[in-house]
Simulated scan of single mutants.
Amino acid sequence: MGLRKKKQRAETATRHSDGDGEGPRFGAPTGDWAVELRGVRRQYGRGTGAVHALRGLDLALPRGSFTAVMGPSGSGKSTFLQCAAGLDRPTEGTVRLGGTEITGMSENKLTALRRTRLGFVFQAFNLLPSLTVEQNVLLPMRLAGHRPDRRAAAAMLSRVGLGDKGRRRPGQLSGGQQQRVAIARALVTSPDVIFADEPTGALDTTTATEILGLLRSAVDGMGATVVMVTHDPSSAAWADRTLFLADGSIADRLERAPAAQIAERMTALTAAPAAYAGAAA
């Protein structure tokens, strides 16, 4: 997919936004979204002690796009990621990934979908120390019951700059190199969506920039879709758009914004999340 076409699709998604008291809404329902949440609520507990982690999210993220998700502590970022990736089930609403509704799927089908159509990158890398780098990259294929494609693993390791590290163990690599392996593992099955949870949180600034560049190039060069939760405005500035959560709702968004502007919005949102969400709606 060309960069111009992807940009037009992303702009189309944002032009369809409207406020309804729950925060901006993104996109109209179609079969061409990588991630689509409609009326998603997630409540923990009941009665007066209930916690409303998500309060009716409506959004659609286009394929081949990079979205950052930010918000104060307790705003619902982690719950959003878990529900969007099928790791948690919403109390109400529907979730679609690559056009497939996952809300009512059995656990077995959800597990199979995550192994074949989703990629994950975590702050802690989550590599298996007893396996080689190549074996870690091939793990999603093995878990899905597919024959490991060593050529695909080698090609992906080369893409992330680790073409000569396939036989090493994770413990022999730096933190930045281990995160590169995690990105190669996430990309090797050509997933519909890559979910990244604070992928640069354990890295120094220079290494973090390299990792974010890899995620950006995966979107621009491979047509990947990345959804990244982060607390860092500099990281969010690599994305096509930044969504701001507050009290379980989407409070605001920015398109292709610099780090300083993102930081300014986060400061305002953290200072008065309820008022800011109301103003954004």
Score class of each variant (00 low, 15 high):
residue 46 R to T: 14
residue 82 Q to L: 12
residue 77 K to D: 06
residue 238 W to C: 01
residue 250 I to S: 00
residue 115 R to L: 15
residue 192 D to K: 07
residue 269 L to F: 05
residue 47 G to I: 07
residue 56 G to T: 02
residue 265 R to W: 04
residue 163 G to I: 08
residue 180 R to G: 11
residue 45 G to Q: 12
residue 11 E to A: 14
residue 134 E to M: 13
residue 87 L to M: 14
residue 143 L to A: 12
residue 108 N to C: 14
residue 222 M to S: 12
residue 249 S to P: 10
residue 218 A to P: 00
residue 53 A to V: 01
residue 203 L to M: 10
residue 182 A to V: 03
residue 83 C to A: 05
residue 87 L to F: 12
residue 66 F to E: 00
residue 73 S to F: 04
residue 131 L to E: 12
residue 3 L to V: 11
residue 261 Q to K: 13
residue 40 V to D: 00
residue 163 G to R: 10
residue 12 T to F: 12
residue 3 L to K: 10
residue 84 A to M: 06
residue 208 A to M: 02
residue 73 S to T: 13
residue 161 G to H: 00
residue 237 A to V: 01
residue 118 L to P: 03
residue 30 T to D: 15
residue 64 G to N: 07
residue 197 D to N: 05
residue 36 E to K: 09
residue 239 A to W: 00
residue 157 L to Q: 08
residue 36 E to V: 07
residue 71 G to W: 03
residue 254 L to N: 01
residue 48 T to N: 12
residue 222 M to I: 07
residue 171 G to S: 04
residue 127 L to F: 02
residue 232 D to I: 05
residue 241 R to K: 11
residue 10 A to N: 14
residue 124 A to K: 14
residue 47 G to P: 06
residue 213 G to T: 02
residue 166 G to W: 07
residue 167 R to F: 05
residue 98 G to L: 04
residue 75 S to T: 05
residue 195 F to V: 08
residue 204 D to C: 10
residue 79 T to S: 11
